[in-house]
Simulated scan of single mutants.
Amino acid sequence: MTVRAILEAKGRYIYSVEPDERLSAAIRTLAERRVGAVLVMRGARLDGILSERDIVKVLADRGADALDGPVHAVMTREVVTCAQGDTVGEIMEVMTSQKFRHLPVLENERVVGLISIGDIVKWRLNEYEHEQQALHDYIKSA
């Protein structure tokens, strides 16, 4: 199965913030949208990603004063991405080995979606349920 199939099932909408936005405003976006990461974008260009881990780290290092600073001071700048043609197995390997929970999906250097580990778990559980139902139907018809 591919990233494209997951995006088609879940949708391609992404949440993003501007690099100069205050960290406190970005945190509010995470809380309101109930997501663990937002893309940091300047127009259509991906500048970075801001995750809950980035926020916890800066708060531990600098305290509450960091909340008044800009997102670009906290975000992860070197973003690992995937493509729509990548398989679920490939992105699971990347997420596991590099300890990422979110991967932006790029196509021709344009952001077309965001895949989370939750999306993958949901997809795999759905696949498993379909396999179990098919096996059950097969046994029942035999």
Rank of each mutant, 00 (worst) to 15 (best):
L67M: 14
A73L: 08
G63W: 10
L39A: 10
T76M: 08
M92A: 13
I91Q: 02
R53K: 05
A37I: 01
G85N: 04
G69K: 15
A66I: 11
Q84L: 03
G69M: 13
S97G: 00
I55A: 03
L46D: 08
D54F: 03
M95A: 02
L46V: 11
R34A: 14
D47M: 14
L50G: 03
P70G: 13
R77S: 06
G69I: 06
C82G: 00
L59P: 03
V88W: 04
D61L: 15
V58Q: 11
Q98V: 04
H72Q: 14
V74T: 14
V88Y: 00
R42E: 15
R34I: 02
L39P: 06
R33Q: 15
V56I: 14
S51L: 03
V40F: 07
S97P: 00
E78M: 01
T96K: 07
S51I: 04
V88H: 02
K57A: 05
G48S: 12
R34T: 07
G43S: 10
V94Y: 01
V94G: 00
I91V: 13
R62H: 13
E93Q: 09
V79N: 07
I91L: 15
R62G: 04
Q98F: 12
H72G: 00
G69A: 14
R45Q: 14
D54C: 07
G63C: 09
D86R: 07
Q84H: 00
V94M: 03
A83C: 01
M92S: 10
L50C: 07
K99V: 06
T87R: 04
D47I: 13
R77D: 00
V38K: 09
I49Y: 12
D68L: 14
G48R: 02
A44P: 02
R34L: 12
Q84G: 12
I49V: 15
G63H: 08
A83Y: 08
Q98E: 06
V79G: 08
M75Q: 11
V71F: 13
A83N: 11
A60P: 01
P70M: 09
S51Y: 01
D54A: 03
E52A: 00
V79T: 08
G36D: 00
A60W: 01
D54S: 06
A64P: 06
K99N: 10
L67H: 13
D47F: 03
D68M: 13
I55H: 03
A66Y: 12
M92C: 14
V38M: 13
M75C: 12
M75Y: 10
T87A: 07
I55D: 02
A60C: 02
R62K: 14
R77A: 04
S97K: 15
V71D: 12
V35G: 11
R34C: 00
S97M: 08
A37L: 01
V35N: 08
A64Q: 12
V74S: 08
V56C: 02
L46Y: 13
R33T: 05
T81E: 05
I91E: 01
A66S: 15
V38L: 10
M95L: 11
G69C: 12
C82D: 03
T76V: 13
Q84T: 10
K57S: 09
L39Y: 10
D65T: 12
R45E: 15
G48F: 07
A44T: 04
R62W: 12
P70E: 15
R62F: 15
A37S: 15
R53S: 12
D86S: 06
A64N: 12
L39I: 11
E93H: 09
R34W: 02
E52W: 01
A60Q: 05
